[in-house]
Deep mutational scan, measured.
Amino acid sequence: AQASVVANQLIPINTYLTLVMMRSEVVTPVGIPAEDIPRLVSMQVNRAVPLGTTLMPDMVKGYA
């Protein structure tokens, strides 16, 4: 199964992502692939992302 990117903490709206904020986990539904974690660093979330939430492409500015 493919691992997705999951929030490792509460990520406030407009926060620039860093490695410590994200982890990879096999979840349903599938979100942003874990292999894209390096690409996500320094990208901004466009909403608050609670701890344990799967990151979806529409949550990250400029990802989709």
Rank of each mutant, 00 (worst) to 15 (best):
T18N: 10
K61P: 15
P12G: 11
E25M: 05
A1P: 15
I37V: 11
L10E: 15
Y16Q: 10
S4R: 02
N46P: 04
P33S: 10
M22V: 10
V41T: 12
I11R: 00
M43L: 09
A64M: 08
I37D: 00
A48M: 10
A3Y: 10
P38F: 09
Q9R: 08
T15V: 14
M43V: 07
R39T: 10
P38I: 05
T28P: 02
P12Y: 04
R23E: 06
N14T: 03
M21F: 09
M21K: 08
A64T: 10
P50G: 07
I37S: 08
L19V: 15
Q9A: 15
M21W: 03
R39M: 11
M43Q: 13
A34E: 12
T15R: 04
P57N: 05
I13G: 11
A3V: 06
M22Q: 01
A3C: 05
Q2T: 09
P12W: 09
R23W: 05
M43N: 09
P50K: 11
A48R: 06
N14W: 07
Q44V: 11
M59N: 06
S24A: 12
T53Q: 12
V60K: 01
N14D: 14
A7T: 10
N46C: 03
N46Q: 15
A7D: 01
Y16R: 08
A64I: 13
G31K: 01
P29G: 05
V26M: 12
Q9W: 07
T28I: 11
D58P: 10
Q44A: 09
R39E: 04
L19Q: 11
E35R: 04
T15I: 06
V60D: 01
I11E: 00
A48N: 10
T18I: 07
Q9H: 10
E35D: 11
L10T: 10
Q2M: 13
V5R: 01
T18P: 00
L40H: 00
V41H: 07
T28R: 02
R47E: 13
I32P: 00
L51A: 10
L55V: 12
M59F: 07
Q9C: 04
P57R: 11
E35G: 09
R47D: 13
N46A: 10
N14F: 09
L40P: 00
S42Q: 13
G31T: 02
T28K: 03
A64N: 12
V60E: 01
P50F: 12
M21Q: 13
I11V: 15
A48E: 15
S24E: 08
L19C: 04
E25H: 04
V49Y: 02
M56A: 09
A34R: 04
P57I: 07
I37L: 15
V5M: 02
N8Q: 08
I13R: 08
A3T: 10
A3M: 14
I13T: 12
R39Y: 15
T53I: 12
V6Q: 05
E25Y: 04
K61G: 09
M59A: 08
P50I: 08
M22R: 00
L17D: 01
A64F: 03
Q2V: 11
L17I: 14
I11Q: 00
I37E: 04
V27P: 02
D58W: 07
S4H: 01
L51R: 06
S24H: 08
Q9T: 14
V41P: 04
M21L: 10
L17K: 00
N46G: 12
R47W: 04
D36A: 10
I11C: 02
M43Y: 11
R47C: 04
T15A: 14
S24Y: 06
M56E: 10
L40W: 01
S42A: 12
L17F: 03
M22A: 00
M59P: 01
V27A: 06
D36K: 06
I11L: 09
L19G: 10
V45P: 04
V49F: 02
M56K: 09
A1V: 12
L40E: 00
V41L: 15
V45M: 08
L10N: 13
S4D: 01
S24P: 13
P29Y: 04
M56P: 01
Y63A: 04
N14M: 13
V45W: 00
V26R: 02
M43R: 05
L17S: 00
I32K: 00
A1C: 03
P12S: 07
A1L: 15
V27I: 11
T18E: 15
A48G: 09
G62M: 10
P57Y: 05
Q2N: 14
V26Q: 11
I13L: 14
L10W: 11
T18H: 14
T15E: 15
T15H: 08
G52N: 13
V5F: 00
I37N: 01
L40N: 00
M21V: 06
L51W: 12
A48Y: 14
R47S: 12
L51E: 13
P12K: 06
R23M: 08
V27C: 03
T28Y: 06
G52T: 03
G62L: 12
V41Q: 10
V5K: 01
D36I: 07
T28Q: 14
A3H: 10
Y16P: 14
P29K: 05
L10I: 14
P57C: 05
T28H: 06
P50C: 04
L17E: 00
T53H: 08
V20Q: 12
V49W: 02
G31A: 05
T54H: 04
V30H: 09
S24C: 03
P50Y: 09
E25G: 07
V30F: 15
V45S: 14
R39F: 14
P33V: 08
A34D: 14
A1Q: 06
